[in-house]
Nucleic acid binder design. Structure first.
Lengths: 350, 350
DNA sequence: GCGAGGGATGTTATCGGTAACTCTCACCTC
DNA sequence: GAGGTGAGAGTTACCGATAACATCCCTCGC
């Protein structure tokens, strides 16, 4: 920081006002100022007014760092998430952020890299013991969740409903499995012989929920179970995944792990000369904002990510403050939104 | 925090290790530990090894809060942004985050509400003087930028190129105006008599850059200048904005303020029985990931938001540390990506 | 009249670090 | 052998708050 020329020392405050400056100007002790700010302890109305006036004058703002260091009440959360450009994560984040802000918490967001390990996650916390929310829809998120020390106050939005043997009470999830099964049954009910599935990357080593739900429904109906295709998160990956398959006229229904994949699938189908929904029905997952405006508009499973995010914060809030936190808000169950991209199977009598 | 059952006091550390614990166990002073951690000052190899071993043993992590409080080097940035679900903001954020993380900065993100005022913005900073980046593409962002005290080290990604009279050296932007003009000229070159424009909400009271560029090009070509339509950010808003207009066969080309608007516009056109691009050309802005996969795929202006975000951090880095910060990386100029949604005007001889 | 009670404040310790200064030797020079 | 030097470590102050404890003064009860 070089300084050239004349600077009058008086009107260029080198650092902003601290609680001590306020105390000095107001002629009281620094502790009294703290009392006024936090509304704790007794202060005479007169003194309070004076202090408040000085605070206004000096434009004093409490330093959050110092406050947290000194063991003030936990009023901040860090959200760990990987890719905020994915609709699901972004919407969940929005819900979390809104709920937290409304409850008076300040929200920090820390973006996870695919390769980050345990040490790295601990590094992101401002202080040991910081409250954390994790969006664990993908691999990076799940790993971050796993590597979080058990003593940090945490709540997570996860893909996978925990097994019955060890349910973590601090997790929320949407019933992807039932939703995928429902969407699959819907397609079967339209007369399709079977349904193909393009999967998003799995966050676990096990079969992902959506894949399982799809398989459940096919098995229950006694239909052939095709090998699931492995897509990524992007339209491009959906496009590439189904290209080998999509020209086959026996393929009449494809369920996609998210709406972006469905977009790629529809393009691949068009390029193969197949008409949607006449020759081929496509169903997505998420009900992202563009879905209703695509051509054809996309039949998809609406997931209440925002509600889930709000609920996740509600859970965390109760964990931090079991006495005073309000009840955890409910969120909506997945819902199939039928639009133009799905129709009775070609040649069916529906 | 209720505790039931027996807890052995020894193996449940009430709080995680501090630098003092490390010092005590290692049998050195706390300052020596600090020296080892920061690599400043001289420490014998032997002592260093011992301290490091103890750090490992105790799982010690420095408390960032305390470090920042104590005036350690500024190693953190807060990004102020409004809606992370918009492609432009999300992509810029990704660029900023990546660049900052790579440079060893920790990144916090704080989401602006539409109604947040001056006081509110100051409130978000962890401490007065915290480094900040602002994504000011919309009204909330611009207001946040304006209400930032002049002494905070800041860099911003803005929509509007600052006027020549008082350019702020700590801002970066994309040349939206030139890009919009270019896209408009492209459409005119296809034989369209004029081009209609659906605007995104303005971040300034003046005419937004994209609107100006569009008007520039029409004026330069001596074409009629239609009243710009006012959309929002969503496909729905684009749909609603153009519905009254789109049935008119004399409207043959529409430029949209972003890709989402274009999506809504295309749907409105289809519903009005107009064929794209046969009857009507539609051009978007942003080149968001779905654009290439839409039906028809969207001609759009590609904007290097990620590069802009990286550059913005580069700028901030130089501001914080003029000596050592690397050069500010370059970003790409806007580029028109021609796809299926634009074609020669109906009846033209092209 | 005097100790008890309690409202309004001040004092001191503490959080977990960093920065600046000090201290202690071993070694080197003249 | 006295004094200077510099590496390696310790001491102390400070960052800006909160929390616990101490103090002052005034009023009330007996």
């Amino acid at each position: 920081m070089e300084v050239t020329g004349h600077i009058s020392g008086e009107d260029v405050p080198r650092r902003s006002a601290s609680i001590w400056d306020v105390a000095r100007v107001a002629g009281v002790s620094q502790q009294t100022v703290s009392r006024v700010i936090n509304g704790k302890g007794r202060v005479s109305a007169e003194t309070r007014a004076k202090v408040l006036r000085v605070i206004e004058e000096l434009g004093y703002r409490p330093n959050k760092l110092a406050r947290m260091l000194a063991g003030g009440p936990v009023r901040s959360v860090t959200v760990l998430t990987s890719d905020t450009s994915l609709y699901g994560a972004a919407a969940t984040l929005r819900g979390m952020e809104e709920a937290a802000r409304t409850a008076g918490f300040s929200v920090g967001i820390s973006v996870l890299e695919p390769g980050s390990g345990q040490r790295d996650v601990a590094e992101r916390l401002n202080r040991p013991g910081e409250a954390v929310m994790v969006i664990a829809y993908d691999d990076a998120g799940v790993r971050a969740l796993a590597s979080l020390p058990p003593d940090v106050p945490m709540a997570a939005a996860v893909e996978r409903r925990p097994g019955a043997e060890a349910p973590d009470p601090w997790q929320v999830w949407l019933d992807d499995r039932a939703a995928a099964a429902h969407a699959t049954r819907y397609l079967l009910s339209l007369g399709h012989r079977t349904v193909h599935y393009v999967a998003i990357p799995s966050s676990t080593s096990d079969l992902p929920q959506r894949t399982q739900g799809w398989a459940d429904a096919l098995r229950a109906a006694g239909r052939p179970l095709p090998e699931p295709l492995h897509g990524g998160w992007s339209p491009r990956s959906g496009y590439l995944a189904v290209r080998p398959l999509v020209a086959d006229p026996s393929v009449t229904a494809i369920l996609c792990g998210n709406d972006d994949l469905a977009l790629g699938v529809m393009r691949a189908a068009r390029e193969a000369g197949r008409h949607i929904p006449g020759d081929l029905s496509v169903v997505g997952f998420d009900d992202s904002p563009p879905a209703a405006y695509l051509n054809p508009s996309l039949t998809t499973v609406r997931l209440d990510f925002e509600g889930l995010g709000r609920a996740c914060f509600g859970l965390l809030h109760r964990r931090l403050d079991p006495q005073n936190a309000p009840a955890v808000p409910a969120w909506s169950e997945p819902e199939l939104i039928v639009r133009e991209s799905s129709a009775p199977a070609p040649g069916s009598t529906f």
